[in-house]
Nucleic acid binder design. Structure first.
Lengths: 104, 104
DNA sequence: ACAATACATAAGCACAAACTTATGTGATTC
DNA sequence: GAATCACATAAGTTTGTGCTTATGTATTGT
């Protein structure tokens, strides 16, 4: 399932780090490895998992492959979260953050 | 880490089902097992993981333990999601859902 | 055409996670 | 107070996940 792929992908701390890096700007696989102490195949495998979860998109550019955040994955998380909106109001601070960000 | 516990907890389909059940009304562990083909210890272990992730709260009631959704966990997901708001606008439908739910 | 670069894929191993059976604990009932 | 019920915990087994080394596949440069 789609939803399953997303949560499974984000369950790994290394993949969350990769995703966060890409959120700060698109990069190719080699650039992502900088300062991460991770092998080339491991990075490639992580990116494949993130791709399958639609959290990340690839774009061939010559012999490089540029990676960027795929909004589809995030939207699916937002949808999942929306299902439980009934339980949100009790924690106001985080919700204010969300509302503030969306009102613009 | 806190964030890690949450994503790890939600990575398991059985735990997501349990969480979803609890979102439709608090229940004790035995009631949760109904129609789930899961052993008593397995259920207990899943609930422990959800508890550690602050996705679920327990409340002793005699010899029963009533479980309910803990908003804290959801709030943490919302905070995580908010960090990537820059990538939301491209998928409008899901955002409209969120906004509609929150405007009331 | 050949070498080098950037990345993907395959196969195997090590560890973690989810299950099992067995047993423990606390509360209720008789 | 003994039995029962609801649940937690322990220990062991199996399955899954992430790594490694090795190799494959495009693309570029000479």
């Amino acid at each position: 399932m789609m939803e399953h792929d997303i949560f499974r992908a984000l369950a790994d701390p290394t993949r969350r780090t990769i995703f966060e890096k890409l959120a700060n700007g698109s990069m190719n696989a080699s650039a992502l490895r900088q300062g991460m102490d991770i092998s080339q195949p491991a990075m490639s495998q992580h990116l494949a998992v993130l791709r399958e979860a639609r959290l990340v998109r690839e774009q061939r550019e010559g012999r490089f492959v540029n990676y960027q955040v795929d909004p589809d994955g995030l939207a699916l998380i937002a949808e999942w979260l929306a299902k439980y909106r009934a339980y949100w109001p009790t924690r106001i601070d985080a919700l204010k953050l969300l509302l503030k960000d969306m009102d613009q």
